[in-house]
Computed example of a mutant assay.
Amino acid sequence: MSVQHLTTDHEYRLLCGMSGYLDAVSVAAGVGPESSTIDFDSPMSAYLALDGQLAVHPGRDTALVWDERHGWSFTIETHSGEDLLVVAYLGDDLVPPPSRVREFIRTIRARTRRTPSPAPPELNRGRADLLARLLDYRTPQTLSSQ
């Protein structure tokens, strides 16, 4: 992972926390950390490629997407390479435990029919709150520039 221009200790700690959290969610989801990426821009977001497809959306790859406004969403790839289509949002917690994310994945995969596109929840309480929520997941990161 490369990061450009992290200017403060606060941003570095946020990156370390999010990296550790995403690694823990990757393990819970049954995929490796190499399946994930973090975009540190504002709003910060993360992408986690999942194995398999949904029975109700055959032929489309699946992924989890997290952002600091809406939390986790379960998405499917489009056939045209455009934006991902959101199938569901996890809901009321910006940084749920990885085990809860795993259960969210299982619930969505168990669906037997399509549902309407959901409205995104508004979960953003600021980066200070996000950092506090990520402290338990913090892992040091080696910074490199490109």
Rank of each mutant, 00 (worst) to 15 (best):
G17R: 03
D92V: 00
R125K: 15
V3G: 07
L85C: 07
R69W: 12
D51Y: 12
M18Y: 05
V95W: 04
L94N: 01
T75S: 15
L134N: 07
D136Y: 08
S35Y: 07
A110L: 01
W72L: 02
M1C: 04
R113G: 15
Q146V: 15
R60F: 06
Q141F: 13
T112P: 03
D83S: 04
S36G: 06
P43R: 10
T139V: 02
Y47F: 15
F104K: 04
L48T: 06
G20R: 11
R111W: 13
T7P: 01
T62D: 06
S144H: 11
R114P: 00
E11N: 08
D41H: 13
G91D: 02
A110S: 14
E122S: 14
S117V: 12
V101A: 02
I108G: 12
I38A: 01
E122I: 10
Y47G: 05
P116N: 13
P43I: 13
M44W: 04
S117G: 04
R69F: 10
T142S: 04
G81I: 09
I38P: 00
I38H: 01
L14E: 08
D67E: 08
R113F: 14
R106W: 01
R133T: 08
G126A: 10
D41E: 09
D23F: 07
P118M: 02
S144I: 02
A63F: 10
P120S: 13
L131H: 03
R138G: 06
E34K: 11
P120W: 09
I38S: 01
V95K: 02
Q146S: 15
G81L: 14
D83T: 03
Q146G: 15
R133G: 12
G20W: 06
P97H: 13
E103G: 05
R125F: 11
S19Q: 04
S45Q: 14
P43Q: 09
V101W: 01
V31A: 02
G59S: 11
E82P: 03
D9K: 15
L6K: 00
R114T: 14
E103A: 15
S35P: 01
S80M: 15
E77L: 04
G59W: 03
F104Y: 02
T75R: 14
Q4E: 10
H5M: 08
A46E: 01
Y21S: 13
A88V: 00
G59F: 03
P43Y: 00
R109A: 04
L50T: 05
L123Y: 07
S36A: 15
D83G: 05
F40R: 13
M1A: 10
L48A: 02
L84E: 03
R138Q: 14
A29C: 14
Y89C: 01
A119N: 12
L54K: 01
D9W: 14
T8F: 07
R127M: 05
S35M: 15
R113D: 13
T8W: 11
T115F: 06
M18F: 08
T75L: 12
R60D: 00
Y89A: 08
D136M: 07
S2F: 08
L22A: 12
L48D: 02
P120H: 12
R69C: 12
L85Q: 14
V65G: 14
M44E: 00
L90K: 05
A49I: 09
P96C: 06
L134F: 13
R125D: 02
A63V: 05
V56M: 04
R127Y: 08
Y12P: 00
D136N: 15
F74Q: 06
H5I: 00
T7W: 10
P33C: 11
L84Y: 11
P58V: 10
D129S: 07
